[in-house]
């Protein structure tokens, strides 16, 4: 299912329109994956102008009455014959393939010559953005890859980054490392993949993320994520667990 991860309130609004269009074109559910920060944030929003909907894809499958002019339409998900169900699955995966081809989306910042690429989506990407700029100021060739679609995952962008000399990826997340495997699959051994994350509503400071970038730049892993198999092995280093930002009681 296409999943969109906005990093601003404006983007959250804009993505709704795109998500509807993709849902309509491919007959698939789509999801807007906002996080607790983005979801509760107030920012000005400009809604797009109304548009003409007459060019939306035709819907010959719709169950809106046969008007006695066509054979009746049926919408169901029950296939009792294994052959029929297998064919349905193939047809669906054909659709997924098209979505993977056409709808990967990401934002790149300072990536042209990046050796260390921070990968972050949603609110985490806003913190990572500052940290990457600070790293550049310190002479580290860091860049930011912000996935806008989490599925399809922006693998083509990661391919290009690897081809252009990225040697290390650092997944910065506001969760327990759920994205690490996506990054590792896309990197496919061409660079190291590390993880720095906080959860539960604790936000890392840009300084903490910068420290993680510096650790990676020095060639040390932040955590032993190259051995990632179980989620437990990608927990952030204990020294990072106490944040300078704590939620007020």
């Amino acid at each position: 299912m296409p999943v969109f991860a906005p990093s601003t309130v404006q983007e959250m609004a804009d993505l709704i329109y795109d998500a509807f269009d993709i849902a309509d074109e491919y007959r698939t559910p789509t999801m807007i994956l906002a996080d607790g920060m983005i979801g509760q944030m107030m920012e000005p929003v400009l809604l797009p102008p109304e548009r003409d909907l007459s060019s939306l894809p035709a819907k010959p499958w719709a169950t809106s009455g046969s008007k006695m002019e066509r054979k009746h339409n049926v919408i169901n998900s029950l296939y009792l014959s294994p052959n029929e169900l297998e064919n349905t699955n193939y047809e669906r995966f054909e659709r997924y393939k098209q979505i993977i081809e056409k709808h990967q989306r990401q934002e790149l910042m300072m990536c042209d010559d990046a050796e260390i690429v921070v990968v972050a989506f949603g609110a985490a990407s806003r913190i990572a953005r500052t940290a990457v700029r600070d790293a550049r100021a310190k002479g580290i060739k860091a860049g930011l890859l912000r996935p806008i679609t989490l599925w399809p995952y922006p693998t083509k962008a990661i391919d290009e980054l690897c081809e252009n000399g990225a040697r290390a990826f650092l997944s910065v997340e506001l969760n327990m490392g759920q994205m690490v495997q996506d990054v590792r699959l896309a990197v496919n051994g061409r660079a190291t993949v590390d993880f720095y994350g906080r959860t539960g509503g604790v936000l890392p400071t840009p300084e903490e993320v910068l420290e993680a970038i510096e650790t990676v730049a020095a060639g040390d892993p932040v955590v032993q994520s190259s051995e990632v198999g179980a989620v437990g092995s990608i927990l952030p280093h204990p020294k990072h667990r106490k944040s300078t930002y704590e939620r007020g009681e």
Binding site: T63, S64, S66, H72, N73, V74, I75, N76, S77, L78
Partner: peptide
């Protein structure tokens, strides 16, 4: 609209548009 239950296949019994 057909349910889940013994009448789940009702969409095959009726000539009007049907959803399961």
């Amino acid at each position: 609209i057909a349910p889940v239950g013994c009448s789940v296949m009702m969409y095959n019994f009726f000539n009007c548009d049907m959803i399961e």
